[in-house]
Design a protein around this nucleic acid. Structure first.
Length: 616
RNA sequence: GCACCUGUAGCUCAACUGGAUAGAGCGCCAGACUACGAAUCUGGAGGUUAGGGGUUCGACUCCCUUCAGGUGCACCA
């Protein structure tokens, strides 16, 4: 999606014709790659290319070749048996003067068009994008006016959150923030599992414990309710697996619950209240606040309509007593059913997920729905989305974009599912506490001069950020190897390295008695000159592209990678060029670079859901 | 059996969904603090992208096939 016409190079209105930075015009596009793309598209028409068959394909380039490259002429020329370099030359000749003034343009190899931003153009971008609000204003056109619903975290009640719940929560929150930054309105929906068969077993076990020793049960529930419910679930589950009669009894309890039995409903409510309170403690640490928590139970009374509509539209059919959907056009789902009503008449998660999709469109007017779960539910969501598209089309409901955002398993360093020393599940509560403890040890070792109280606060940020970032820094589709040493490490692509880079910039401003982004200081800045200054500026300008790709692919690691490279570029600059020099114009421009690096770094980290520090 | 995911440097991971000489960190080797935080930086060595075919100007990326690991597949979510 290109920028709004008339805001950049695509029109002759912008003229970066004066090398003196103070003359840089006000309107500088946030996403220069997109702007260049638009300029090339216009130029293609002017140059007599077949506009319909030409896409510029602008992307960020290897710094050896420039800042951006356009690859579109290769395919275009090939398809028409033209000389690609000749086409590229025609195209470049047709570019508006503003682009030629802002960039060095070369044609290389088989027909790549390379663009290198001149120092004044880089300076202009930095001057324009001087606050978080201006960055957001630039990015916010991409999904402006769209409504999205993001379904993430979604643990089951009656159980504690464990390490398996981490990725959905962390990745989901980052996706929410990215969508918002791009201008979308986002509803954060915690689709908790509060209506499944686990309650049959759990209620059965509760009643049994009640009969056996009511006082002991009450005492255990008073001490740590969630631990006790978890233990009872295990009792019920083991018993049900060992004895079919217990399984039947548990099913009966579930049926009673779903029918509205007062006693079972009371137990169920108690369990959910206790669970949500415990979840919120984790969410507070991760900086997550849901707009709605609409679990499976919320849709319980809406399932009849689902059965009715899917039957009436001919999408669902009876099979072996169940109501199912087959997809004849699909190699597998033509025989593998999507069961939306069990043979015993009960609903299941296919039913509630169908109802959920409908509710999100009817109630929230969703343009896009994102569901963040692990990859093992791939079949389910593929079937669900196929069904939803057919159903909504048949009923003339709005069909939103549907995305199943998957991620791999969390494994230990042996490649197997992560377990504690004694083979138990790693509880999220304990994992975060350990991260904090390890971070505290590290901060204490490195910064013994900071008061203990502040060190604890720093450790809380570093510990949680390290856990979050470990997840966000790698492609979500691969399995994730959990390794403490790598996670809390200060070296390499870690949260601590990025937080350190930020703390060091804050330190520069403290030392020089300056304020980041101070307009009076920056007004004195001279043109960018040294290789390190220019390299850093080039990296800063590409923030827009990092945001774009992370959002388009719903993969936050593209942003993480960018921020890591930015921090590295800053460290190189820091080592090469001293900020605290006597020449006021040089000092001013380097302070400006520091301020923009800080701005982009902190804005980016906040988009990932991390908290940042001013010292550590 | 049928499908999906994964396989890249000794290790942990990237590679913008087909672009230029496949990049980082750790580890290893050699350097840089009487300079704003060395929790840092600058160099170097390290690759048949699991194997084999194919598609094309161009392939880690797409297709076919073999191998290895993981995961799903009728009433759990």
């Amino acid at each position: 999606m290109g920028p709004a016409p008339g805001v950049g190079w695509a029109t002759p209105r912008l003229r970066v014709s004066h090398p003196r930075p103070e003359c840089v015009p006000m309107h500088v596009a946030f996403n220069l790659a997109a702007d260049l793309d638009a300029a090339l598209t216009s130029a293609a028409t002017a140059a007599g290319l077949e506009a319909a068959g030409f896409a510029p394909e602008v992307r960020t380039a290897d710094p050896r070749h420039g800042d951006f490259q356009a690859n579109g002429v290769l395919g275009y020329a090939k398809a028409r048996k033209l000389n690609p370099r000749a086409v590229a030359e025609k195209l470049v000749a047709a570019l508006p003067a503003s682009v030629k003034e802002a960039c060095e343009i070369t044609i290389a190899g088989p027909g790549f068009i390379n663009f290198s931003l001149k120092p004044a153009a880089l300076f202009g971008w930095l001057r324009t994008h001087d606050s978080a609000a201006h960055l957001k204003a630039g990015a916010g056109t991409a999904k402006s006016g769209q409504q999205w619903v993001v379904d993430y975290s979604s643990p089951n009640t009656a159980k504690q959150m464990h390490v398996g719940h981490l990725r959905s929560a962390v990745i989901g929150e980052a996706i929410c923030r990215l969508l918002e930054f791009n201008g979308a309105k986002v509803v954060r929906d915690n689709h908790i599992g509060d209506w499944g068969t686990q309650f049959g077993k759990l209620i059965w076990a509760c009643k049994k414990a009640q009969v056996a020793d009511a006082a002991a049960l009450d005492a255990a529930l008073a001490r740590d309710p969630l631990e006790e419910f978890e233990r009872l679930y295990k009792v019920g589950n083991d018993a049900a697996e060992a004895d079919p009669a217990v399984m039947d009894a548990a099913r009966a309890e579930l049926v009673k619950l779903q029918a509205g039995d007062a006693e079972n409903l009371a137990v169920w409510k108690h369990i959910n209240g206790v669970s949500l309170a415990a979840f919120q403690q984790i969410y507070d640490q991760l900086g997550i606040r849901f707009d709605v928590t609409l679990g499976e139970s919320f849709y319980n009374d809406q399932v009849e309509r689902i059965y009715r509509e899917l039957t009436a539209t001919g999408i669902a059919e009876e099979s072996q007593g169940a109501l199912v959907v087959f997809h004849p056009e699909h190699p597998r789902f033509k025989t593998q059913p999507f069961i939306m009503r069990k043979a015993d008449g009960a609903s299941n998660y296919a039913t509630t997920d169908l109802a959920t999709a409908l509710y999100r469109v009817e109630h929230f007017h969703a343009d896009g729905i994102v569901v963040v779960t692990d990859f093992r539910q791939g079949d389910h969501f593929e079937q669900l989305f196929l069904t939803v598209r057919k159903w909504f089309a048949a009923k003339h409901y709005r069909v939103p974009e549907l995305h199943h955002v998957t991620f791999g398993a969390v494994t230990g360093e042996d490649g197997k599912a992560l377990r504690t020393r004694d083979g138990g599940i790693v509880k999220l509560k304990e994992l975060l506490a350990e991260a904090e403890a390890r971070a505290f040890a590290l901060v204490s070792e490195r910064s013994a001069d900071i008061p203990a109280e502040e060190r604890h606060a720093i450790a809380a940020t570093v510990g949680v950020a390290s856990v979050q970032y470990a997840d966000l820094s790698q492609n979500r589709s691969s399995d994730y190897v959990f390794a403490w040493d790598k996670m809390i490490s200060l070296e390499g692509n870690t949260a601590a390295y990025l937080l350190y880079a930020g703390a060091r910039i804050h330190s520069i401003f403290r030392k020089l008695g300056a304020t980041p982004g101070d307009a009076a200081t920056e007004a004195a800045a001279s043109a960018l000159e040294t290789p390190a200054e220019l390299a850093l500026a080039r990296k800063l300008v590409k923030f827009a592209d990092a945001i774009r790709i992370a959002t388009d692919t719903l993969r936050p690691h593209f942003l993480s990678l960018y921020l890591y490279e930015l921090a590295g570029e800053f460290s190189a600059f820091y080592g090469a060029d001293k900020v605290a020099v006597d020449d006021p114009a040089v000092r001013a421009r380097r302070l400006m670079l520091c301020a923009r690096t800080l701005l982009v770094l902190e804005t980016g980290l906040h988009l990932l859901g991390l908290r940042t520090l001013t010292r550590m």
